[in-house]
Amino acid sequence: MIKIRGLKKRFGTNEVLKGIDLDVKKGEVLSVIGASGSGKSTLLYCINGLEPIQDGYIEVDDTRVHDRNTNVNLLRQKLGMVFQQWNSFPHLTALENVALAPRIVRKKSKREAQEIAKKQLSHVGLGDKLDAYPNSLSGGQQQRLAIARALAMEPEYMLFDEATSALDPELVGEVLDTMRLLADEGMTMICVTHEMGFAKDVSDRVAYFHQGILEEVGPPSQIFGNPTSEHTKKFLSKTR
């Protein structure tokens, strides 16, 4: 379980997260929506310790992410992350991209790491691209490669930061399908997204962020059907 209490995050004097309380249970899929600049990406970065925080805490399975004594490199193995930009390692083949972290971080043998990589590449539908270099793959394929790379660490949680926003429209579907697949398999997921269809169909709950505040959180039926907050209403009327 991910447990966030009183989380505050500032960049200089700019308070980007203004006291967030949020729980994400095992097996749950949470979609995070909100205007650009409302702090959605920052929330994900804080959850896996890529950004320091100023107040409150985040616990992942009872481990405090920002605690001095926490081995954050170890913790991150539990938290797969997929970014807007896919960031494939350009000098490595698809197989090597995925096998690298299992080998050097999880200390698997080269063969084991490659087995894991093959399995995860097939998982995301790239079983026939093992030896391809990223520059020969489409954006959608590279994003699925990034998903496979994160899955190869056998994470318990997956954090998606607008995984489809940088893609050409015709490539969005294949990535959303992969995310849907993971959700069906029971992966715990936090998905920052602009894909309202995905948020509606796939998530158990939807969180709406407004200017650094968690304005409203609830099942998709509530957020999309009967939002209580005026801000939420306004945001959704604009995106439709």
């Binding site: 896996n48 890529l50 490199n73 170890l74 991150r76 797969g80 970014f83 960031n87 971080v105």
Partner: peptide, 27 residues
């Protein structure tokens, strides 16, 4: 962003430097 991706996989500062920054930067 590339380095954040590497770190998000659990790579340490030095592993990121050795296995990501070094080979890409060298090229």
């Amino acid at each position: 962003p590339m380095q954040r991706a590497a770190r998000s996989l659990g790579m340490s500062y030095w592993q990121n430097l050795r296995h990501v920054v070094w080979p890409i930067g060298l090229r």
